[in-house]
């Protein structure tokens, strides 16, 4: 299968509060991750807040600067060093769906203007009637009716706003769709509608989807492969089956056991592996394995050496204790 995106030792760091009086503090949002995304697949990235999943996603579409490392798109464009023209090429092929469907739409623009904007910007040679036809076709694709075209975002519910956001992303006919918590803000009944829409669109348009969420239920439903992140590092990466059923990394296990399942019998019977404490600060990540401060199995070795990612059984794992 073709690698549409190949990420190697990618780092995204943010500098905080640099001033004349104090030295800069560095947030290690993404701290050296490597993975591949294959054409047509759905890769899920899970992790808790502060694990760097959003920073990673935003770096892949140009919203965050890549500090170091490499991200090769479509085997041709290196995102870490891409120039304006190359980025415009990437924008045509990599689009983003935001978490807050309402905030992602300019309240002063009509639906038509919102959906048409990427097309008008990136394909300035298109005529107005071509643009219009494309807008209408895309609206139909995501389940919006054409008589909503001149309305403003405030007249729509959250679910419909998310459809408008998806239409804006799809009008460019991108290869890759990055969904950053795109269904988290929606009501349960609407969430299912949007998830189904995304799945239908993926089949129809042969999209590659990178789906970021903290909701392990949604990730399990929609994704083929899962990448588990913690404090800017990859903990485990593997097929859905092997991650959910044969998780190796202690963090993956703890995360999976912490998710409440909508089934009282299972919940009552379940042994929850409670993690102590909170996420450490990404400004001063722990030495050694970043998970060692909360890991129930942490040893001195964990506190001293940062684990290498290695293939164990079917999963890529980074843990010194797993061989």
């Amino acid at each position: 299968m073709k690698k549409i995106l190949s990420v190697k030792d990618l780092k995204v760091h943010f500098h905080l509060g640099r001033s004349w009086f104090k030295s800069a503090r560095v947030v290690h949002a993404v701290d050296g991750v490597s993975f591949d995304v294959f054409e047509g697949e759905t890769l899920g990235i899970v992790g808790e807040s502060g694990c760097g999943k959003s920073s990673l996603a935003r770096a892949l579409c140009g919203l965050n600067k890549i500090t170091s490392g490499s991200a090769l798109f479509n085997e041709t464009i290196e995102l870490a060093t891409a120039n304006k023209a190359q980025w415009n090429d990437v924008h045509k092929q990599v689009q983003f769906i935001f978490q807050d469907p309402v905030a992602a739409l300019d309240p002063r623009m009509t639906v038509a203007e919102i959906i048409a904007e990427p097309l008008i910007t990136l394909y300035p040679q298109m005529t107005s009637s071509q643009v219009m036809a494309k807008v209408l076709a895309t609206m139909k694709l995501v389940g919006l009716s054409q008589n909503q075209i001149n309305r403003y975002p405030q007249e729509f519910s959250g679910g419909q706003c998310q459809r408008i956001g998806i239409a804006r992303a799809l009008i460019l006919e991108p290869k890759v769709l990055i969904c950053d918590e795109s269904v988290s803000a929606l009501d349960v009944s609407i969430k299912a509608q949007i998830i189904n829409l995304l799945q239908d669109l993926q089949q129809q348009l042969k999209l590659t989807i990178i789906f970021i969420s903290h909701d392990l239920g949604v990730i399990k439903h929609i994704c083929k492969r899962i990448l588990v992140m913690y404090l800017g590092n990859i903990m485990e990466l593997g097929d859905k089956q092997s991650v959910y059923e044969n998780a190796l990394h202690p963090y993956t296990k703890a995360l999976l056991s912490a998710v409440p399942v909508a089934n009282p019998e299972l919940e009552k019977a379940k042994q929850i592996q409670l993690l102590e404490g909170d996420l450490p600060s990404p400004i001063n990540p722990p030495k050694g394995c970043v998970f060692n401060t909360r890991c129930p199995q942490a040893t001195n070795e964990c506190r001293a050496t940062r684990p290498q990612t290695k293939m164990v059984a079917n999963n890529l794992v980074s843990c010194v204790q797993i061989h």
Binding site: S157, G159, Q160, D187, V188, S189, I190, K191, A192, Q193, I195, N196, Q199, D215, L216, G217, V218, K220, H221, I222, Y244, L256, V259, V261, A262, N263, L266
Partner: peptide
Amino acid sequence: ATIPSLDTHVEKLKTIPGEP
């Protein structure tokens, strides 16, 4: 029926049509 859950697997989620 609309909740994607860890303990079950469905190909396609059931949905409630319409809006809140």
